[in-house]
């Protein structure tokens, strides 16, 4: 259960400001795709257009097509809520619901949508999701405790468990490790490697080693200057991007040289 994403001629706006210009990209199913690039180049903005989270911001809009296994997400008849049910998201800062226990956080996607579920089914789902996020052994004795009592890395894995509990086709991760220490980062990276067996994973990261470690393909975004739109510069296999990029800007960026 995972789907591919094809983006055609996508322009992303904040009101009148063109933030990302003319992106064409094909993201394979059951793979990890990394977006890298300098701050403000629009990678997070672009990521948020892939599950229609971009339009939550007032004035934000999109032109172009995003196809999930051939179906356009931005068709006028499409309900964004359906899209987000299929394409889950993990954010930069861990954001478990503070009013809910660990168990309820995992079940949030089900419970908040008011779906009925028997207690044993719910127990199974909690265990499956937490195991899937490599968190089950650490929290199985305190499922009724508040989720905000966990450490940062555990909270982030809880958020991943919460995202996979609604069984999405695609998981988007917006710098999931930037607020975490190296050990928690390693745990998340291992998890990403396991997740790609079942899901399509797209990850935005500032850490190029991380992109090199976890991703199959890498997309490099860049920006010509402040106020200019971000653009997709190069998209290729991760090994190619890091070893033999065909564009000079990419090579400068991945090797740490700029300008």
């Amino acid at each position: 259960m995972s789907k591919r994403i094809d983006v055609k001629d996508l322009n992303v706006y904040y009101s009148k400001f063109l933030a990302v210009e003319d992106v064409n990209i094909n993201i394979e199913a059951r793979s990890v795709t990394a977006f890298i690039g300098p701050s403000g180049c629009g990678k997070s903005t672009f990521l948020r257009t892939l599950n229609r989270m971009h339009e939550v911001i007032p004035g934000a809009r999109v032109e172009g097509e995003v196809l999930l296994d051939g179906d356009n997400l931005y068709d006028t008849a499409v309900d964004p809520v359906t899209v987000r049910g299929q394409i889950g998201m993990v954010f930069q800062r861990p954001n478990p619901f503070p009013t809910m226990s660990i168990r309820d956080n995992v079940l949030a996607g089900v419970k908040l949508n008011n779906k009925r579920m028997s207690k044993s089914d719910a127990d199974d789902l909690v265990e499956k999701s937490l195991s899937g996020a490599n968190l089950w052994n650490e929290v199985k004795d305190r499922l009724a405790r508040p989720g905000s009592g966990l450490s940062g890395g555990q909270q982030q894995r809880l958020c991943i468990a919460r995202a996979i509990a609604v069984s999405p086709q695609v998981i988007l991760m917006d710098e999931p490790c930037s607020a975490l220490d190296p050990i928690s980062t390693l745990a998340i990276e291992d998890l990403i490697n396991e997740l790609k067996a079942e899901y399509t994973v797209v990850i935005v990261t500032h850490n190029m080693q991380q992109a090199a470690r976890v991703s199959d393909k890498t997309a490099f975004f860049n920006i010509a200057g402040t106020g200019k739109p971000g653009k997709l510069i190069e998209y290729d296999d991760t090994t190619t991007i890091f070893n033999k990029p065909s564009i000079k800007a990419t090579e400068d960026y991945v090797s740490g040289r700029f300008g």
Binding site: M53, V81, Q86, F91, N95, P98, A108, G109, R162, V166
Partner: peptide, 11 residues
């Protein structure tokens, strides 16, 4: 972030 977390779960 909490609102976005909830939207991202398809709520």
């Amino acid at each position: 972030e909490l609102r976005e977390a909830s939207y991202a779960l398809g709520v």
